[in-house]
Design a protein around this nucleic acid. Structure first.
Length: 454
RNA sequence: GCGUCGGUGGCAGAGUGGUCAAUUGCAACUGACUGUAAAUCAGUCGCCCCUUGGGCUACGUAGGUUCGAAUCCUACCCGGCGCA
Protein backbone atom coordinates (compact mmCIF):
# COMPACT_ATOMS: atom_id res chain seq x y z
CA UNK A 1 0.00 0.00 0.00
CA UNK A 2 1.22 3.45 -0.85
CA UNK A 3 -0.28 6.79 0.08
CA UNK A 4 0.50 10.06 -1.64
CA UNK A 5 -0.87 13.43 -0.69
CA UNK A 6 -1.57 15.52 -3.77
CA UNK A 7 -2.76 18.72 -2.21
CA UNK A 8 -3.40 20.15 1.22
CA UNK A 9 -5.98 22.65 2.33
CA UNK A 10 -4.62 25.97 3.44
CA UNK A 11 -5.00 26.67 7.12
CA UNK A 12 -6.33 23.31 8.24
CA UNK A 13 -5.78 19.60 8.12
CA UNK A 14 -7.65 18.62 4.97
CA UNK A 15 -5.95 17.03 2.02
CA UNK A 16 -6.53 15.12 -1.21
CA UNK A 17 -4.47 12.11 -2.11
CA UNK A 18 -4.19 8.71 -3.68
CA UNK A 19 -4.04 5.44 -1.84
CA UNK A 20 -2.63 2.68 -3.98
CA UNK A 21 -3.37 -0.92 -3.13
CA UNK A 22 -2.73 -4.20 -4.90
CA UNK A 23 -6.32 -4.06 -6.14
CA UNK A 24 -6.38 -0.51 -7.36
CA UNK A 25 -6.24 3.09 -6.32
CA UNK A 26 -8.54 4.90 -3.93
CA UNK A 27 -8.74 8.62 -4.59
CA UNK A 28 -8.99 10.33 -1.24
CA UNK A 29 -10.92 11.63 0.49
CA UNK A 30 -13.15 8.71 -0.34
CA UNK A 31 -16.32 7.17 0.88
CA UNK A 32 -16.22 3.40 1.20
CA UNK A 33 -19.62 1.66 1.11
CA UNK A 34 -20.16 -0.95 3.77
CA UNK A 35 -20.64 -4.54 2.69
CA UNK A 36 -20.62 -6.23 6.07
CA UNK A 37 -21.26 -9.76 4.90
CA UNK A 38 -19.31 -9.48 1.65
CA UNK A 39 -22.14 -7.69 -0.07
CA UNK A 40 -23.30 -4.12 -0.21
CA UNK A 41 -26.88 -4.95 0.61
CA UNK A 42 -29.17 -5.07 -2.43
CA UNK A 43 -26.44 -4.26 -4.97
CA UNK A 44 -24.23 -6.31 -7.22
CA UNK A 45 -20.53 -5.41 -7.09
CA UNK A 46 -20.92 -4.21 -10.65
CA UNK A 47 -23.55 -1.72 -9.53
CA UNK A 48 -21.32 -0.59 -6.69
CA UNK A 49 -18.52 0.08 -9.10
CA UNK A 50 -20.77 1.80 -11.61
CA UNK A 51 -21.93 4.32 -9.06
CA UNK A 52 -18.34 5.34 -8.51
CA UNK A 53 -17.29 3.59 -5.31
CA UNK A 54 -13.64 2.52 -5.39
CA UNK A 55 -13.56 0.15 -2.43
CA UNK A 56 -15.85 -1.70 -0.05
CA UNK A 57 -15.62 -2.47 3.65
CA UNK A 58 -16.53 -5.91 5.00
CA UNK A 59 -16.70 -7.19 8.54
CA UNK A 60 -14.46 -9.73 10.20
CA UNK A 61 -16.86 -10.84 12.91
CA UNK A 62 -19.81 -11.38 10.60
CA UNK A 63 -17.81 -13.24 7.97
CA UNK A 64 -16.10 -15.33 10.63
CA UNK A 65 -19.51 -16.47 11.86
CA UNK A 66 -20.95 -16.89 8.40
CA UNK A 67 -19.81 -18.38 6.10
CA UNK A 68 -16.51 -18.69 7.98
CA UNK A 69 -13.13 -17.22 7.04
CA UNK A 70 -11.74 -20.62 6.16
CA UNK A 71 -14.38 -21.08 3.53
CA UNK A 72 -13.59 -17.68 2.08
CA UNK A 73 -9.91 -18.52 2.05
CA UNK A 74 -10.69 -21.72 0.18
CA UNK A 75 -12.80 -19.75 -2.25
CA UNK A 76 -9.67 -17.82 -3.12
CA UNK A 77 -10.21 -14.83 -0.85
CA UNK A 78 -12.85 -12.18 -0.49
CA UNK A 79 -12.20 -10.51 -3.84
CA UNK A 80 -12.83 -13.67 -5.76
CA UNK A 81 -15.58 -14.90 -3.49
CA UNK A 82 -17.70 -11.76 -3.80
CA UNK A 83 -16.51 -10.83 -7.28
CA UNK A 84 -15.16 -7.42 -6.32
CA UNK A 85 -11.73 -6.80 -7.78
CA UNK A 86 -11.21 -3.38 -6.22
CA UNK A 87 -9.72 -2.65 -2.82
CA UNK A 88 -11.39 -4.27 0.18
CA UNK A 89 -11.13 -3.11 3.76
CA UNK A 90 -12.17 -5.31 6.65
CA UNK A 91 -13.19 -4.02 10.03
CA UNK A 92 -11.75 -6.00 12.90
CA UNK A 93 -14.89 -6.78 14.86
CA UNK A 94 -14.03 -4.07 17.37
CA UNK A 95 -17.29 -2.31 16.68
CA UNK A 96 -19.18 -5.46 17.58
CA UNK A 97 -17.54 -5.31 21.00
CA UNK A 98 -19.63 -2.20 21.40
CA UNK A 99 -22.77 -2.92 19.39
CA UNK A 100 -23.19 -6.41 20.82
CA UNK A 101 -21.80 -5.46 24.21
CA UNK A 102 -22.44 -2.19 26.02
CA UNK A 103 -24.92 -1.02 23.39
CA UNK A 104 -26.83 -4.29 23.15
CA UNK A 105 -30.52 -3.80 23.75
CA UNK A 106 -30.06 -0.13 24.55
CA UNK A 107 -30.72 3.07 22.73
CA UNK A 108 -27.05 3.50 22.12
CA UNK A 109 -25.44 3.64 18.75
CA UNK A 110 -22.58 5.16 16.89
CA UNK A 111 -23.90 8.66 17.40
CA UNK A 112 -25.63 9.53 20.62
CA UNK A 113 -28.24 12.24 20.85
CA UNK A 114 -27.39 13.28 24.36
CA UNK A 115 -26.48 16.95 24.21
CA UNK A 116 -25.96 17.74 27.88
CA UNK A 117 -22.31 16.82 28.49
CA UNK A 118 -23.02 16.05 32.13
CA UNK A 119 -25.24 13.22 30.98
CA UNK A 120 -22.47 11.69 28.98
CA UNK A 121 -20.18 10.79 31.83
CA UNK A 122 -22.39 9.35 34.53
CA UNK A 123 -21.07 7.06 37.15
CA UNK A 124 -20.82 3.69 35.54
CA UNK A 125 -23.63 1.90 37.26
CA UNK A 126 -23.13 -1.78 37.52
CA UNK A 127 -24.95 -3.25 34.57
CA UNK A 128 -22.74 -6.27 34.27
CA UNK A 129 -25.82 -8.45 34.42
CA UNK A 130 -27.46 -6.62 31.53
CA UNK A 131 -28.05 -8.93 28.58
CA UNK A 132 -25.33 -8.59 26.02
CA UNK A 133 -23.74 -10.72 23.35
CA UNK A 134 -20.18 -9.52 23.92
CA UNK A 135 -18.20 -9.63 27.15
CA UNK A 136 -14.78 -8.10 27.46
CA UNK A 137 -11.84 -9.76 29.12
CA UNK A 138 -8.25 -8.60 29.28
CA UNK A 139 -7.13 -11.00 26.61
CA UNK A 140 -10.03 -10.61 24.20
CA UNK A 141 -13.77 -10.62 23.89
CA UNK A 142 -16.23 -13.47 24.15
CA UNK A 143 -19.11 -13.21 21.77
CA UNK A 144 -22.35 -15.08 21.84
CA UNK A 145 -23.33 -15.54 18.24
CA UNK A 146 -26.51 -13.70 17.34
CA UNK A 147 -27.08 -16.40 14.74
CA UNK A 148 -27.05 -19.57 16.84
CA UNK A 149 -25.99 -18.62 20.35
CA UNK A 150 -22.63 -20.35 20.15
CA UNK A 151 -19.76 -18.78 22.09
CA UNK A 152 -16.67 -17.44 20.30
CA UNK A 153 -13.60 -15.89 21.80
CA UNK A 154 -11.99 -13.20 19.68
CA UNK A 155 -8.54 -11.93 20.55
CA UNK A 156 -6.47 -9.40 18.63
CA UNK A 157 -4.47 -12.31 17.23
CA UNK A 158 -7.58 -14.12 16.11
CA UNK A 159 -9.08 -11.03 14.50
CA UNK A 160 -5.91 -10.34 12.54
CA UNK A 161 -5.58 -13.97 11.51
CA UNK A 162 -9.13 -13.98 10.26
CA UNK A 163 -8.56 -10.77 8.35
CA UNK A 164 -5.46 -12.21 6.73
CA UNK A 165 -7.48 -15.26 5.72
CA UNK A 166 -10.14 -13.11 4.22
CA UNK A 167 -7.54 -11.43 2.05
CA UNK A 168 -8.50 -7.78 2.33
CA UNK A 169 -6.20 -4.97 1.20
CA UNK A 170 -6.55 -2.94 4.36
CA UNK A 171 -7.34 -4.43 7.74
CA UNK A 172 -7.90 -2.95 11.17
CA UNK A 173 -6.47 -3.62 14.59
CA UNK A 174 -8.84 -5.17 17.09
CA UNK A 175 -10.11 -2.43 19.39
CA UNK A 176 -12.83 -1.62 21.86
CA UNK A 177 -15.29 0.98 20.68
CA UNK A 178 -16.61 2.63 23.83
CA UNK A 179 -19.82 4.45 24.57
CA UNK A 180 -19.56 8.14 25.41
CA UNK A 181 -21.82 7.34 28.34
CA UNK A 182 -18.94 5.63 30.10
CA UNK A 183 -17.15 7.48 32.84
CA UNK A 184 -13.58 8.64 32.42
CA UNK A 185 -12.09 5.89 34.52
CA UNK A 186 -13.63 3.22 32.31
CA UNK A 187 -12.60 5.12 29.16
CA UNK A 188 -9.03 5.06 30.37
CA UNK A 189 -9.22 1.38 31.20
CA UNK A 190 -10.70 0.59 27.78
CA UNK A 191 -8.14 2.77 26.06
CA UNK A 192 -5.25 0.98 27.73
CA UNK A 193 -6.79 -2.27 26.59
CA UNK A 194 -7.20 -0.99 23.02
CA UNK A 195 -3.57 0.13 23.04
CA UNK A 196 -2.37 -3.24 24.29
CA UNK A 197 -4.48 -4.91 21.65
CA UNK A 198 -3.05 -2.58 19.02
CA UNK A 199 0.47 -3.75 19.79
CA UNK A 200 -0.63 -7.37 19.74
CA UNK A 201 -2.49 -6.79 16.47
CA UNK A 202 0.61 -5.27 14.98
CA UNK A 203 2.86 -8.07 16.18
CA UNK A 204 0.75 -10.88 14.78
CA UNK A 205 0.20 -8.93 11.60
CA UNK A 206 3.92 -8.51 11.04
CA UNK A 207 4.38 -12.21 11.51
CA UNK A 208 1.60 -13.14 9.11
CA UNK A 209 2.63 -10.54 6.53
CA UNK A 210 6.17 -11.75 6.68
CA UNK A 211 5.05 -15.32 6.13
CA UNK A 212 2.91 -14.31 3.20
CA UNK A 213 5.72 -12.35 1.67
CA UNK A 214 8.18 -15.18 2.04
CA UNK A 215 5.75 -17.71 0.66
CA UNK A 216 5.02 -15.60 -2.37
CA UNK A 217 8.65 -14.81 -2.89
CA UNK A 218 9.46 -18.49 -2.66
CA UNK A 219 6.80 -19.27 -5.20
CA UNK A 220 8.02 -16.59 -7.57
CA UNK A 221 11.62 -17.84 -7.29
CA UNK A 222 10.45 -21.33 -8.09
CA UNK A 223 8.53 -20.06 -11.07
CA UNK A 224 11.57 -18.37 -12.47
CA UNK A 225 11.79 -15.01 -14.18
CA UNK A 226 8.23 -15.11 -15.45
CA UNK A 227 6.81 -15.13 -11.95
CA UNK A 228 5.98 -12.00 -10.08
CA UNK A 229 9.00 -10.12 -8.89
CA UNK A 230 10.38 -10.66 -5.45
CA UNK A 231 9.94 -7.73 -3.09
CA UNK A 232 10.69 -4.70 -5.16
CA UNK A 233 13.29 -2.07 -4.56
CA UNK A 234 16.29 -4.30 -4.40
CA UNK A 235 17.07 -3.00 -0.95
CA UNK A 236 16.01 -6.13 0.74
CA UNK A 237 17.32 -6.73 4.23
CA UNK A 238 19.56 -9.81 4.00
CA UNK A 239 18.42 -10.77 7.47
CA UNK A 240 15.07 -11.54 5.98
CA UNK A 241 16.42 -13.98 3.54
CA UNK A 242 15.69 -16.94 5.67
CA UNK A 243 13.75 -19.94 4.58
CA UNK A 244 10.03 -20.09 4.46
CA UNK A 245 10.05 -23.00 6.82
CA UNK A 246 12.12 -21.06 9.31
CA UNK A 247 9.68 -18.21 9.23
CA UNK A 248 6.68 -20.45 9.47
CA UNK A 249 8.10 -22.42 12.31
CA UNK A 250 8.56 -19.23 14.27
CA UNK A 251 12.36 -19.42 14.45
CA UNK A 252 12.53 -15.96 13.06
CA UNK A 253 10.91 -13.43 15.32
CA UNK A 254 9.12 -11.26 12.81
CA UNK A 255 8.18 -8.65 15.36
CA UNK A 256 11.82 -7.67 15.65
CA UNK A 257 12.12 -6.96 11.99
CA UNK A 258 10.83 -3.71 10.66
CA UNK A 259 8.80 -3.98 7.52
CA UNK A 260 8.95 -1.01 5.21
CA UNK A 261 5.71 0.93 5.36
CA UNK A 262 5.28 1.17 1.62
CA UNK A 263 5.07 -2.48 0.93
CA UNK A 264 5.70 -4.01 -2.38
CA UNK A 265 2.63 -4.76 -4.46
CA UNK A 266 3.99 -8.18 -5.14
CA UNK A 267 2.89 -9.21 -1.68
CA UNK A 268 -0.77 -9.83 -1.09
CA UNK A 269 -0.32 -9.17 2.61
CA UNK A 270 -2.70 -6.44 3.70
CA UNK A 271 -1.93 -3.05 5.20
CA UNK A 272 -2.81 -2.68 8.86
CA UNK A 273 -4.47 0.38 10.35
CA UNK A 274 -4.34 1.09 14.08
CA UNK A 275 -7.36 2.58 15.78
CA UNK A 276 -7.45 5.65 17.99
CA UNK A 277 -10.03 5.68 20.76
CA UNK A 278 -10.36 7.79 23.91
CA UNK A 279 -14.03 8.68 24.07
CA UNK A 280 -14.88 12.34 24.38
CA UNK A 281 -11.89 13.25 26.51
CA UNK A 282 -9.32 15.53 24.92
CA UNK A 283 -6.62 14.11 27.12
CA UNK A 284 -7.36 10.50 26.23
CA UNK A 285 -7.89 11.20 22.55
CA UNK A 286 -4.52 12.91 22.32
CA UNK A 287 -2.85 10.23 24.36
CA UNK A 288 -4.30 7.65 22.03
CA UNK A 289 -3.26 9.51 18.90
CA UNK A 290 0.28 9.82 20.22
CA UNK A 291 0.48 6.18 21.16
CA UNK A 292 -1.15 4.66 18.10
CA UNK A 293 0.61 7.18 15.88
CA UNK A 294 3.98 6.10 17.25
CA UNK A 295 3.46 2.50 16.18
CA UNK A 296 4.33 1.09 12.79
CA UNK A 297 0.83 1.05 11.36
CA UNK A 298 0.23 1.70 7.68
CA UNK A 299 -2.62 4.05 8.48
CA UNK A 300 -5.06 4.90 11.21
CA UNK A 301 -8.67 4.57 12.10
CA UNK A 302 -10.48 7.01 14.34
CA UNK A 303 -13.05 5.12 16.29
CA UNK A 304 -15.55 5.52 19.06
CA UNK A 305 -19.13 6.40 19.59
CA UNK A 306 -19.67 10.14 19.57
CA UNK A 307 -22.04 12.82 20.60
CA UNK A 308 -22.46 14.48 17.23
CA UNK A 309 -21.32 17.89 18.33
CA UNK A 310 -18.17 16.43 19.86
CA UNK A 311 -17.02 14.76 16.71
CA UNK A 312 -15.21 17.60 14.98
CA UNK A 313 -13.09 18.39 18.02
CA UNK A 314 -12.18 14.76 18.49
CA UNK A 315 -11.13 14.50 14.85
CA UNK A 316 -9.06 17.66 15.08
CA UNK A 317 -7.29 16.63 18.28
CA UNK A 318 -6.37 13.32 16.75
CA UNK A 319 -5.39 14.38 13.28
CA UNK A 320 -3.12 17.16 14.53
CA UNK A 321 -1.07 14.44 16.17
CA UNK A 322 -1.23 11.47 13.78
CA UNK A 323 1.65 11.27 11.28
CA UNK A 324 0.62 13.38 8.33
CA UNK A 325 1.95 11.10 5.61
CA UNK A 326 -0.22 8.13 6.53
CA UNK A 327 -3.93 7.78 5.70
CA UNK A 328 -6.68 8.23 8.28
CA UNK A 329 -10.05 6.56 8.27
CA UNK A 330 -12.93 7.98 10.29
CA UNK A 331 -14.76 4.82 11.16
CA UNK A 332 -18.49 4.58 10.69
CA UNK A 333 -19.15 8.17 9.79
CA UNK A 334 -21.02 9.17 6.70
CA UNK A 335 -23.82 11.72 6.98
CA UNK A 336 -23.10 14.54 4.52
CA UNK A 337 -22.35 17.27 7.05
CA UNK A 338 -20.08 14.90 8.97
CA UNK A 339 -18.19 13.92 5.84
CA UNK A 340 -17.45 17.56 5.03
CA UNK A 341 -16.34 18.10 8.63
CA UNK A 342 -14.04 15.10 8.45
CA UNK A 343 -12.59 16.05 5.09
CA UNK A 344 -11.84 19.54 6.29
CA UNK A 345 -10.10 18.09 9.31
CA UNK A 346 -7.81 15.70 7.55
CA UNK A 347 -9.76 12.48 7.19
CA UNK A 348 -8.97 10.48 4.05
CA UNK A 349 -11.35 7.55 4.26
CA UNK A 350 -14.88 7.10 5.50
CA UNK A 351 -17.22 4.18 5.69
CA UNK A 352 -20.76 4.21 6.93
CA UNK A 353 -23.95 2.22 6.78
CA UNK A 354 -26.07 5.37 6.75
CA UNK A 355 -26.50 5.74 2.98
CA UNK A 356 -27.32 2.08 2.46
CA UNK A 357 -29.44 1.56 5.54
CA UNK A 358 -31.28 4.83 5.07
CA UNK A 359 -31.96 3.85 1.48
CA UNK A 360 -33.47 0.53 2.46
CA UNK A 361 -35.66 2.31 4.97
CA UNK A 362 -36.93 4.89 2.49
CA UNK A 363 -34.78 7.87 3.46
CA UNK A 364 -33.11 9.36 0.42
CA UNK A 365 -30.53 12.11 0.09
CA UNK A 366 -31.20 15.21 -1.94
CA UNK A 367 -29.24 18.45 -2.15
CA UNK A 368 -31.90 20.01 0.06
CA UNK A 369 -31.73 17.36 2.72
CA UNK A 370 -33.14 13.95 3.40
CA UNK A 371 -36.60 12.95 2.26
CA UNK A 372 -38.78 10.01 3.11
CA UNK A 373 -39.77 8.62 -0.27
CA UNK A 374 -42.65 6.66 1.26
CA UNK A 375 -44.46 9.88 2.20
CA UNK A 376 -47.81 10.53 0.58
CA UNK A 377 -46.35 13.58 -1.15
CA UNK A 378 -44.39 11.34 -3.53
CA UNK A 379 -47.19 9.00 -4.49
CA UNK A 380 -47.83 10.84 -7.72
CA UNK A 381 -44.58 12.73 -8.15
CA UNK A 382 -43.34 11.63 -11.54
CA UNK A 383 -40.10 13.59 -11.36
CA UNK A 384 -36.85 11.90 -10.41
CA UNK A 385 -35.82 12.05 -6.76
CA UNK A 386 -33.45 14.82 -7.74
CA UNK A 387 -33.42 16.49 -11.13
CA UNK A 388 -29.68 17.09 -11.24
CA UNK A 389 -28.70 13.67 -9.98
CA UNK A 390 -26.75 11.57 -12.47
CA UNK A 391 -27.38 8.25 -10.74
CA UNK A 392 -28.88 5.29 -12.53
CA UNK A 393 -32.06 5.57 -10.50
CA UNK A 394 -32.68 9.25 -11.17
CA UNK A 395 -31.87 8.86 -14.84
CA UNK A 396 -34.53 6.19 -15.27
CA UNK A 397 -37.14 6.21 -12.54
CA UNK A 398 -39.55 8.61 -10.87
CA UNK A 399 -40.12 9.33 -7.20
CA UNK A 400 -43.62 7.96 -7.64
CA UNK A 401 -42.24 4.64 -8.88
CA UNK A 402 -39.89 4.36 -5.91
CA UNK A 403 -42.70 5.30 -3.57
CA UNK A 404 -44.78 2.54 -5.11
CA UNK A 405 -41.98 -0.01 -4.83
CA UNK A 406 -41.60 0.74 -1.13
CA UNK A 407 -45.33 0.58 -0.47
CA UNK A 408 -45.53 -2.66 -2.37
CA UNK A 409 -42.53 -3.96 -0.41
CA UNK A 410 -40.73 -4.78 -3.62
CA UNK A 411 -37.05 -5.70 -3.48
CA UNK A 412 -36.20 -3.28 -6.25
CA UNK A 413 -37.00 -0.42 -3.87
CA UNK A 414 -33.86 -1.23 -1.87
CA UNK A 415 -31.69 -1.53 -4.95
CA UNK A 416 -32.74 1.68 -6.65
CA UNK A 417 -32.67 3.66 -3.41
CA UNK A 418 -29.26 2.35 -2.43
CA UNK A 419 -27.86 3.23 -5.83
CA UNK A 420 -29.15 6.76 -5.41
CA UNK A 421 -27.90 7.31 -1.87
CA UNK A 422 -24.48 5.85 -2.49
CA UNK A 423 -24.08 7.82 -5.68
CA UNK A 424 -25.09 10.96 -3.81
CA UNK A 425 -22.48 10.39 -1.09
CA UNK A 426 -19.75 9.26 -3.47
CA UNK A 427 -20.39 12.33 -5.59
CA UNK A 428 -20.36 14.62 -2.55
CA UNK A 429 -17.01 13.29 -1.36
CA UNK A 430 -15.65 13.26 -4.91
CA UNK A 431 -16.76 16.85 -5.30
CA UNK A 432 -15.00 17.79 -2.07
CA UNK A 433 -11.84 16.09 -3.31
CA UNK A 434 -11.96 17.99 -6.57
CA UNK A 435 -12.61 21.21 -4.68
CA UNK A 436 -9.50 20.62 -2.59
CA UNK A 437 -7.47 20.07 -5.75
CA UNK A 438 -8.97 23.19 -7.32
CA UNK A 439 -8.50 25.29 -4.24
CA UNK A 440 -12.22 25.90 -3.80
CA UNK A 441 -13.11 23.70 -0.87
CA UNK A 442 -14.58 26.40 1.40
CA UNK A 443 -16.96 27.53 -1.34
CA UNK A 444 -17.90 23.96 -2.16
CA UNK A 445 -18.62 23.21 1.47
CA UNK A 446 -20.60 26.39 2.05
CA UNK A 447 -22.65 25.94 -1.10
CA UNK A 448 -23.60 22.46 -0.09
CA UNK A 449 -24.45 23.29 3.51
CA UNK A 450 -26.50 26.31 2.48
CA UNK A 451 -29.00 24.01 0.75
CA UNK A 452 -28.69 21.08 3.07
CA UNK A 453 -30.95 20.69 6.06
CA UNK A 454 -30.74 17.66 8.22
C1' G B 1 -91.54 -18.17 2.08
C1' C B 2 -89.67 -21.15 6.29
C1' G B 3 -85.37 -22.40 9.15
C1' U B 4 -80.57 -21.09 10.60
C1' C B 5 -76.07 -18.37 11.28
C1' G B 6 -74.31 -13.62 11.02
C1' G B 7 -73.98 -7.90 10.46
C1' U B 8 -68.02 -4.34 15.10
C1' G B 9 -63.76 1.43 13.40
C1' G B 10 -60.58 1.88 5.63
C1' C B 11 -60.21 -3.93 5.40
C1' A B 12 -59.88 -8.67 8.04
C1' G B 13 -61.26 -10.12 12.65
C1' A B 14 -61.51 -10.32 18.55
C1' G B 15 -64.90 -8.97 22.27
C1' U B 16 -70.69 -11.40 24.00
C1' G B 17 -73.95 -6.92 30.58
C1' G B 18 -69.84 -2.66 33.67
C1' U B 19 -62.45 -2.61 33.89
C1' C B 20 -64.64 -0.78 25.76
C1' A B 21 -63.58 4.64 21.98
C1' A B 22 -63.38 -1.14 21.72
C1' U B 23 -57.44 -6.75 21.64
C1' U B 24 -54.76 -7.97 17.21
C1' G B 25 -53.14 -7.93 12.10
C1' C B 26 -53.18 -5.25 7.54
C1' A B 27 -53.77 -0.54 5.26
C1' A B 28 -53.01 4.68 6.10
C1' C B 29 -50.09 8.92 8.28
C1' U B 30 -45.42 10.46 10.45
C1' G B 31 -40.68 9.90 12.52
C1' A B 32 -35.90 7.50 13.58
C1' C B 33 -31.56 5.18 11.54
C1' U B 34 -23.72 7.21 11.35
C1' G B 35 -16.85 0.88 11.73
C1' U B 36 -25.10 -3.19 9.84
C1' A B 37 -28.32 -8.33 15.55
C1' A B 38 -31.64 -3.48 10.64
C1' A B 39 -35.62 -4.76 3.35
C1' U B 40 -35.57 -2.64 10.66
C1' C B 41 -37.72 0.00 14.64
C1' A B 42 -41.00 3.65 16.96
C1' G B 43 -45.32 6.84 17.31
C1' U B 44 -50.34 8.27 15.54
C1' C B 45 -54.69 6.15 13.74
C1' G B 46 -63.81 8.44 15.79
C1' C B 47 -64.58 13.97 16.74
C1' C B 48 -63.60 18.16 20.09
C1' C B 49 -61.21 20.72 24.31
C1' C B 50 -56.30 19.48 24.92
C1' U B 51 -52.79 18.82 31.22
C1' U B 52 -52.46 13.97 33.89
C1' G B 53 -57.56 14.79 32.22
C1' G B 54 -62.42 16.01 30.30
C1' G B 55 -66.67 16.29 26.79
C1' C B 56 -69.38 14.32 22.58
C1' U B 57 -70.89 10.66 18.93
C1' A B 58 -70.16 5.38 17.95
C1' C B 59 -70.24 -1.84 17.22
C1' G B 60 -76.68 -2.64 10.61
C1' U B 61 -81.59 0.57 11.76
C1' A B 62 -85.46 1.74 15.32
C1' G B 63 -87.33 0.79 19.91
C1' G B 64 -87.01 -1.72 24.74
C1' U B 65 -84.94 -4.17 29.51
C1' U B 66 -81.20 -2.44 33.10
C1' C B 67 -78.15 1.91 37.78
C1' G B 68 -75.29 0.50 33.27
C1' A B 69 -75.77 -2.44 26.52
C1' A B 70 -71.12 -3.68 21.11
C1' U B 71 -72.84 -7.55 24.50
C1' C B 72 -79.86 -9.18 26.64
C1' C B 73 -85.14 -8.63 24.26
C1' U B 74 -88.54 -7.06 20.00
C1' A B 75 -89.32 -5.40 15.09
C1' C B 76 -87.28 -4.07 10.63
C1' C B 77 -83.22 -3.87 6.86
C1' C B 78 -79.03 -6.54 4.71
C1' G B 79 -75.84 -11.01 3.80
C1' G B 80 -74.31 -16.49 3.93
C1' C B 81 -76.14 -21.40 4.13
C1' G B 82 -80.13 -25.20 4.16
C1' C B 83 -85.18 -26.62 2.82
C1' A B 84 -89.21 -25.47 -0.31
Amino acid sequence: MKFNIEKKLKGNLGRAGMLETAHGTIHTPAFIPVGTKATVKSLTPEEVRELGAEAVLANTYHLYLQPGHELIRHAGGLHKFMHWDGPIITDSGGFQVFSLGAAYGKELSKITKITDPSLLIPERFDDSDAPRLAKIGQDGVSFKSHLDGSIHYITPEKSIEIQHSLGADIIFAFDECTSPAEEQRYQKEALDRTHAWAKRSLAIHKKLAWETELLEWGVSQAEGPRGSAPPAGGDRDPARECSVSQALSGIVAPSRRETPRSRSFSSSAPALFGIVQGGRSEELRKESARFIGSLDFDGFGIGGSFAKEDMSMAVKWVNEILPEERPRHLLGIGEPEDLLMGIENGVDLFDCVAPTRNARNGTLYTSKGKINITNAAYRADFNPIEKDCDCFTCRNYSAAYLCHLFRGKEMLAATLSTIHNLRFIVRLVGGARQAILDGGFPDFRDAFLLNWRK
